[in-house]
Design a protein around this nucleic acid. Sequence first.
DNA 1: GTCTATACGGTGATAGAC
DNA 2: GTCTATCACCGTATAGAC
Lengths: 229, 229
Amino acid sequence: MKPISEVIAITAQVTEKNLPSRNRNVQSEYRKQQMVHATLDCIDRYGLSQTTLANIAKTAGVSQGNLIFHFQNKENLLNQALLAHNKEYTTNWQTAFESAQKTPIAQLCAIIQAAFKPIVCNRKKISVWYAFWGESRSIPWYLEVCGRQNKEFSGTLLTICQQFDDSALSPESAATSIEAMIDGLWQSFIIGPRGFTRQQALATMFELVKVIYPNETRYIDSVLTEYLI
Amino acid sequence: MKPISEVIAITAQVTEKNLPSRNRNVQSEYRKQQMVHATLDCIDRYGLSQTTLANIAKTAGVSQGNLIFHFQNKENLLNQALLAHNKEYTTNWQTAFESAQKTPIAQLCAIIQAAFKPIVCNRKKISVWYAFWGESRSIPWYLEVCGRQNKEFSGTLLTICQQFDDSALSPESAATSIEAMIDGLWQSFIIGPRGFTRQQALATMFELVKVIYPNETRYIDSVLTEYLI
DNA sequence: GTCTATACGGTGATAGAC
DNA sequence: GTCTATCACCGTATAGAC
């Protein structure tokens, strides 16, 4: 799914070209995006247990009946919301990974930086993950979605770690550690001290990478310097 | 709050001594424990959004009215459940910390081992944390409880890290890294690959500590060996 | 496609017997 | 203290007008 801003751009473009049928489809897609977006907002603000169709409708500025018209039922709406949330997250790190230099350290730094970008690493987005994970026991489908995504990330990370020449850690341990560190630092944004910032998280993250791959210290420092400017 | 097993022991003891009034109090406490326990079970199995008084009552083997009699309302019951959950977690690491040898590395290893003990580190217990954290935005009280606990743990960890003589990491970074690693590895039990075990988690954890404090390699290995026997 | 009105079931909480 | 019966409300989903 495309970000709303992009959909708006497409809508405008199509309108200008006067293509009513495609226009209608795109507008419909945009409406659905709006609703999905409102759903994620509500999950963040009220938690899954207090996220009601009434809430979502009000937030999206549409009627309750309209939600059902587009998504048939609440369950489906929540599923679509999770998929959209997941897609955004995945696209973020994959884009960073693909546009990085083709050296292990550059790729590693790229996906780590991506993980702490404001689009994915903020209180709202993280709250939503936790809301779904908190119900993943009763609704295994939630876990399936997250698990698939997670597996791909882990795989990519492991492949990167396997390309380093020497480290005190095995590639498996290094990959597991780095991934756990990212997840753990994310958690700090929710339950940690109020003043915890993305910059601090990223700095700590890179310090750890330097300890794991001391040979790459120079490159990492250059990335950090560039980032802080 | 005391673990149910202990409460049972006290109940039996008091009964023998024939103290009806205290006995009644203790039995009442035990009843409440049962209900709190059932509540945590339901949060794990159904998620917070599907945890109803009907569910809890059925799980606890009591009537719905009885729940309200003891806890006045659902909100209070959930609060007590979180407090009990939190208490168990805190007691676990504090006990380990206090009974450890008074050297930094022994204390560090002790609280790390405690974090991966089956009592606190299993799918059910972790699910419950996530359920509450997922709602912590809408119910700040949840965050307060977890935050206080978290702060104490962080503080203890930092104090320990400050006692090490030399490391490539600052005490602050080391403490943050270790705490994040624990949290991140916990997360693996929920969304990670199915085969992930506590032993693996602990092994990875200790490998990382060795990288952070290379001087302590020997002690850590001895702990690991002892653990795996 | 979007709305309002409404049916229906489930949920938290109360009342009162035992 | 514990239960059953019951209420009032709210949440999802449907129907039908526009």
